[in-house]
């Protein structure tokens, strides 16, 4: 395959409904914080447009999406227009109105998937990178008790590497889905990955342990290392702008969720096809390396699309 096989519209879109967040996780790439909520009318327009373009999967994220003042309505609307919607949360801002909306969608569709971030079940250890774990644990229990598919997302750092296995074992009574990530470099926090990174040998040993645990306890543990051997040849250096993009609360469109300063257009000024087929997006996929590696060169290639 080549970049010429790029789909005619994204397959997967992350909609960041707010940039507000009540936590300050050490490795968070959503920097700087601006406290903007996506207006409900614009959210609905975006969702309608994504649905019309045949996007397969929408992820609602932020910031912390549950801090959006109208999140129950946004959640219901997205689920009404899409068969599959994923919500990403830190699990500390869930209120009864959110549970009502989730319950309602569950009754209608039979399945709701929510990813909750938690680095360690231990209160103090989780606070080293995120916040004390009590509220998040309560949220995981609440969501699974009403029948949600909960995926626990764990960022493996030198702080929590020893606690990853015990955390998964303890949470296995509530859910069987775990998604593990290594620390990644963040351009706005240069050097953070080196500061937090655990030793490679320890990580490799952990991955082996967790593969065995997954087999023994019938858990679905997604490890970063598993994906190395997979992959198809797209001609593009990474997925950014090839099959996915990200929409921010101010309707700026970015090719990658982790790269917050590269914008390829704005849905207030241009349509999805304009942006998708614009020079800025094409500049991203023509690169020889992932966009997070050398943005300066990309910035010389193209400018965001405006009408």
């Amino acid at each position: 395959m080549s970049a010429g096989n790029r789909p005619c519209a994204p397959l997967l879109v992350t909609v960041n409904v707010t940039t507000r967040c009540n936590l300050d996780c050490v490795y968070c790439y959503m920097q700087p914080r601006s406290g903007v909520d996506m207006p409900r009318a614009e959210f609905e327009r975006v969702i309608d447009e994504l649905s019309a373009r045949g996007v397969f999967l929408v992820t609602l994220s932020g910031g912390e999406p549950f801090l959006h003042p109208e999140f129950p309505e946004l959640f219901r609307y997205a689920h009404k227009r899409f068969a599959h919607v994923m919500t990403l949360t830190n699990g500390t801002a869930l209120r009864s109105c959110h549970l009502d909306a989730i319950h309602e969608v569950l009754n209608e569709k039979g399945a709701v998937t929510i990813q909750v971030s938690l680095d360690a079940i231990d209160v103090r250890m989780n606070a080293l990178t995120r916040a004390p774990s009590r509220r998040t644990l309560r949220t995981i229990r609440q969501l699974t008790s009403i029948g949600c598919h909960v995926i626990v997302a764990i960022v493996v750092t030198r702080h929590n590497i020893a606690a990853v296995r015990p955390t998964i074992e303890a949470l296995a009574e509530h859910t069987r889905w775990f998604h593990l990530m290594a620390v990644q470099d963040i351009r706005s926090k240069m050097g953070i990955e080196r500061e937090l990174e655990s030793e490679l040998a320890m990580r490799s040993a952990l991955w082996s342990e967790l593969r065995a645990l997954a087999a023994a306890r019938d858990l679905a543990i997604n490890l970063p290392a598993d994906e190395c051997a997979s992959g198809c040849a797209t001609g593009a250096p990474c997925m950014a702008g090839f099959s996915t993009f990200v929409i921010d609360p101010d309707l700026k469109v970015r090719p990658c969720d982790r790269v917050t300063d590269v914008v390829i257009g704005n849905l207030r000024e241009a349509t999805i096809p304009d942006i998708w087929n614009g020079e800025a997006a094409l500049g991203v996929i023509r690169r020889d390396e992932p966009i997070c590696r050398s943005p300066a060169r990309w910035e010389r290639l193209a400018s965001p699309v405006t009408r």
Partner: peptide, 17 residues
């Protein structure tokens, strides 16, 4: 034919790799 192994994967171009 297969297009993407995972819709959510961060694609790597195997020949380039």
């Amino acid at each position: 034919q297969l297009f993407l192994n995972e819709i959510t994967q961060e694609m790597i171009d195997v020949p380039r790799l």
